[in-house]
Amino acid sequence: MAAAVVPAAGRGERLGPGAPKALRELGGAPLLVHAVRALARSRAVGLVVVAAPPQGVAEVLGLLDSHGLDGKDIRVVAGGATRQESVRLGLAAIPDATEIVLVHDAARPLVPVEVVDAVVAAVRAGAEAVVPAVPLADTVKRVRPVPAGEPEPVLDTPDRASLRAVQTPQGFRRQVLVEVHAKALAEEAEGGSPVVTDDAGLVEHYGGQVVVVPGHEEAFKVTRPLDLVLAEAVLARRRASDGF
């Protein structure tokens, strides 16, 4: 069985003032509850570890218990000051015998179970790191950053046919994920730090191979208020059509 880590210790300031992003409500339940449910629906996932705000472990554990997430092994640990640290702390709570680990954003509450299964299957088939992703619909411009509010000069226009928007859960051979996090921690102790935004980026940074499997348009990340409105609409449609 695979295990999953859900880093949920961040505040998510772009969503506006209020509770930490993972605890914002969607259809009567926090985003975190939906994200954990999405993972728990997969028969391939036997354990979910949530890395909660350090002062909110008991609250998050009670929250998950109150929403009927039974039948799966769900654990809550104290997360860290950064996403990378939270993943590392969650990873430490997974038994050594577990060979496949998923890392999933708490802010992606509506990922379909078939995406979870596809990621696990790709790791089982031999990949060391797997990301679900979707093609880009918009033209992308690479720009030279300038002070906020000023026009940004365009440097070039990448061919979007070769670009993908990456989602989660991302899947890894456990030993690969443990090793890259250990290397990042050692690098940080020496005054450096790899500039990456996800765990697949760590694997790439240290020379590993990442592969892509098809993602899903409903696995989008809830980052801004408009995303929450869209998520409510998707959830309402699911409930009306199949009792989700």
Rank of each mutant, 00 (worst) to 15 (best):
L63V: 08
D117R: 08
E218R: 04
Q170C: 06
R43K: 08
L155H: 04
A81S: 15
A2W: 09
T82F: 11
E128I: 00
V116T: 08
R144F: 08
S241C: 05
V77K: 08
V222W: 03
G46Y: 03
D70I: 04
A93W: 01
H104E: 12
V103K: 03
V5M: 04
V212T: 14
A78G: 15
L185H: 12
R11L: 10
V113A: 08
P112Y: 02
V123N: 01
Y206D: 14
A161W: 05
L47M: 07
V196H: 11
V33T: 12
L15N: 09
P95C: 01
V130S: 08
E59T: 11
A19D: 13
G12R: 03
T197M: 07
D227P: 02
A182P: 01
L69F: 07
A44P: 00
V123Q: 03
P135V: 03
D96G: 15
G243P: 05
A58S: 14
G28W: 02
G10Y: 10
A219S: 12
V210Q: 01
S42M: 06
R83D: 10
G10R: 11
V6N: 10
L26K: 06
V57Q: 04
V211K: 06
V166N: 02
R11K: 09
R239M: 01
A93E: 05
G18H: 10
A106T: 05
P225E: 13
L202G: 07
G27W: 03
D105R: 12
V222G: 11
V115S: 02
V178Y: 02
V48K: 13
D159P: 14
A148L: 15
M1W: 08
L226K: 13
H216Y: 06
A35G: 15
A35L: 15
G62F: 11
A44M: 13
P53S: 02
P225A: 13
K72W: 12
L102F: 03
R41P: 01
V33P: 09
G192N: 12
E232V: 05
E59H: 13
L69E: 09
A133C: 09
P20G: 08
L32G: 04
V101P: 07
A148E: 14
D156N: 13
Q167T: 12
E128C: 01
G207C: 08
L202A: 06
G126Q: 09
A93Y: 00
A40E: 06
V195D: 14
R160I: 15
L23K: 06
A19Q: 11
E114W: 14
A240K: 00
G171H: 05
V146W: 15
F244H: 06
H67C: 12
L64Q: 04
R238W: 00
V234F: 00
P7I: 07
A148M: 09
G243L: 00
V234H: 00
E128D: 05
V180W: 00
L61K: 15
V119P: 02
R224N: 06
I100W: 09
A200C: 14
G126V: 12
S42T: 10
A3Q: 03
P145Q: 08
A137N: 09
V195W: 13
V210E: 06
L155A: 09
R237S: 00
L163F: 02
G68P: 01
A40W: 01
R224K: 10
